[in-house]
Structures are given as C-alpha cells and as structure tokens.
Design a protein around this nucleic acid. Structure first.
Lengths: 151, 151
DNA sequence: TTACATGCAAAGCATTTGCAGATAA
DNA sequence: TTATCTGCAAATGCTTTGCATGTAA
C-alpha cells in the first residue's frame, strides 16, 4: 500500500486527471473538466459534493448536484480521488492519491492528512481469497476545550 | 477471536452493561434492558439498528426505531459499544469494547475484528490542544471473485 | 447520428426530532 | 408526583434515480 514515486511526473495533477479520464473512455465533458480543475488545482484537500457545488456557483456557473455526485463516483472508481467516510452523513473525497492516513477533529468536522511515513502499520497477511483494496486509518481527536465541556 | 483475560471479571458483559447504565444515572427501562441483553449476550459481534429491531420482533416484542437509535447513541456515549462507520449509510456498532481494528469485506458488507496485537501502529504524538478519542483502522478488502468481475 | 452525459424533480433511505402519552423512582 | 423515557409520525439531509433533453465524437 505504500506508494513511493521514484519517477518524476511532468504532468500537473489536473493534467494527469484529464489524461486518465480520456484514457478510461469516459467523455471529458465540460462539467467533468470544470470539476477536475476545481478538484486538482488547489493543492491537497478534502472536498464534499456540496463544497464543489458552491465553488462552481462562485464562478458563475452551474452544475447540478446529480452530476457532481455522479462525477465524484466516477473519479473515485478511476482512482483519481479517494472517498473517506468520517461519519454517516459526511462523505469527503481527498484529491491526494498518495497513500496517507487521516486525522479527524470530531468537534470541528475538520480532517487533515497524516503522511503514511508517520505511521508504522503492520497488518497480518490477508487470506488468499481476499484482495486488499484500501487501509483506512482515522485518528479521531477532539479539541481539548470541547472535551472538557463533556466531562 | 481469542480472549485472554488476566483479571477474572465475575460479571457477564450484560451485567456489566446494566451496572454501568445504573451508575450513569439513566434509567434501566424495559427497552434498555431488552436491548442490552440482545447486544451483550451473544458474544462479540457487529450490530445495526435494523438488526436489533428485527431481533426484538423475533421475540414477539416491539421497540420503536426511534428508541433503538436513541439507545445505541446512549450506549455509545457510555462507552458500552463503539460505532463503526464503514460507509455513509451503514452504521454498525460493536459490542466488543476491547481495543481492536476491523476487516471489512466490501462486496459482502461483512465486518470482522482484528485484535490490536495483530497490528503494529505507531502514530506521531498529537498536539497538546487535542485529545485522542479513538483510532479507527479499517482494512478494506474484496472477495477475489468480485474483484475479478470488476477488472 | 447515436451513444453517452446532464439536469431536474422526485424518490429513497437511514437517522433525527417534536410532542403526547407512558413509566420509573 | 415528576422528571425522564418511549413511540409515533413527520421532518431532515444526503444521495440516487427516472427520464427528457443536450452534447461529444
């Protein structure tokens, strides 16, 4: 699961995404290009469907929610983005396809990346009938203030 | 799945749960007792609200969904059970309050425990302003058959 | 030309809430 | 008695779907 790029990739994350879209056979439509641009041209971050909807609106354009959800799913299955489930009514996608884990600040709803190299994880071997898809590590924390309120 | 208790606890998980309910100040009502019994008297397992609803019905009783959801939340905040979010519309609760991680078979929707001792996890120290709540490790796998279908 | 994509509105579904009636202490 | 709890039904909020219209190749 550890990805270590030794080869230098000349493409920006956005160009790489577009390339992968074209290669995969799905059409690089206007909506998909707009969304890819928003997703991949702002550095590593975590995005929700609603975020994207709002960001499109800010540019005086409009893409329907249905299309945004469809696109997020397509991009996920192309491996361009990764879905993170932090709680049941919050689906976030991260545009960082490097292997990494997450720090989730529960009372703030904020999520941060933890580089894989900062966590040492040894998992036992998986039975032959199963193929590894992903390992999610979510370190759940609370800001101290919030924690004191509860106790 | 091996349980190695060094300290012998005279209480069953169910009795321990009841005790904690009483101590916490919430009333050990009929519904809460029925649910505690179902949750804690069947060995380690992962339960959904719907599972519980059905199990209550099988005993020719009835507890409303609202009460089941409320109770699961209360039990969670008492630390009796632990919520695991595997995907956005599937909330599972595990009745095993020992520290452990999860193996999730995505195409089957099944979840299994991985004892903590089988995973070596070193996380970096957490900033002083944050308090650690939990670490979720979900190893997501697919049964090989399903994986082959997709490729 | 035509297969694929989009967008709207409606549907779906797990979960939550408001509130009247019930119940534990 | 009275604070708390339960259960119903309605509301919520995210996500998905059906289908008519639009668009890329």
């Amino acid at each position: 699961m550890r990805i270590e790029n030794k080869v230098i990739d000349p493409l920006s994350p956005y160009s790489r995404a577009l390339k992968k879209i074209e290669e995969s056979g799905i059409r690089p439509t206007k909506q998909r290009r707009i969304l890819a641009k928003l997703i991949f041209e702002k550095g590593d971050r975590h995005i929700s469907a609603e975020n994207l909807f709002d960001e499109v609106k800010k540019e005086d354009r409009k893409i329907s929610m249905a299309t945004i959800y469809n696109t997020l799913k397509q991009f996920t299955s192309l491996g361009l983005i990764r879905e993170i489930v932090v709680d049941q009514n919050k689906s976030l996608y991260c545009n960082n396809n490097k292997s990494h884990y997450h720090l989730y600040i529960e009372d703030e709803g904020k999520i941060h990346d933890i580089p894989t190299k900062n966590i040492n994880l040894d998992i036992p071997s998986i039975p032959a009938c199963l193929s590894l898809h992903n390992i999610d590590v979510i370190v759940r924390v609370r800001s101290l203030k919030e924690d004191q309120k509860k106790n």
